[in-house]
Amino acid sequence: MSNTTDDRLCCDIIDIKGLNKWYGDFHALKEINLKVKEGEIIVVCGPSGSGKSTLIRCVNFLEKFQEGSIIVDGIELSDDVKKIRQVRSEVSMVFQHFNLFPHLSVIDNLTLAPIWVHHESKQEAREKALQLLDRVGIKDQAEKYPNQLSGGQQQRVAIARALCTSPKIMLFDEPTSALDPEMISEVLDVMVELAKEGITMICVTHEMGFAKKVADRIIFMDEGQIIEENKPDSFFNSPESDRLKLFLDQILSQ
């Protein structure tokens, strides 16, 4: 299994060592070790319940873990609220169910964190937000409320919201799983564009087309552990473990 570096990939921005997590007695993550370089695009896949969402949710401490360490951009995650907020101000997340704030208009959804967490002026935040909405192709919906938009539009708003704080790392937690089939591509297109720009991304997704196109590395998880990781080419063409072969069979035969 190679862990080779591109030229543009330089330093580890995320360093996960010996990570173990339990839900009660259930061992959800087992001895995870993972390094992510700055600018790297990682796709995490695996059957449901394999711990992939849990893993990325540990990175911004939405999930607590009992053993191991996670260092994000030089900050080690612990119960220290200050450090957690520091990490969260550099790491943005896009959720499966969008989780937009329904009582705020689209533009207010975008400017909330810049204004309250990053202390930008209203004007500044607004301008940046409009630019981002333009980039994801829904500038004209800025004054609407999330529930007035389609699922695909909502997810694009969520991506714009995540980008609004100029994060170093983007976490995607199954961003297309809750979408109607005809809306998946509009969200993936935005993500592909994003991947080209050199932002560090970890995506939990079943969209193998997306993985082939943009991933630097694909990680396959099952039963709370990393089973196999490889570059897209080798990952799809020469899978080694039986579990991955089975998984690929199932997911690609659709």
């Binding site: 939405l62 959720f95 909330l112 967490v117």
Partner: peptide
Amino acid sequence: ISKGQYEAADAAGLS
């Protein structure tokens, strides 16, 4: 209020 709202607020770094 759904759990997602809390998570989105947390993930955004709000206190």
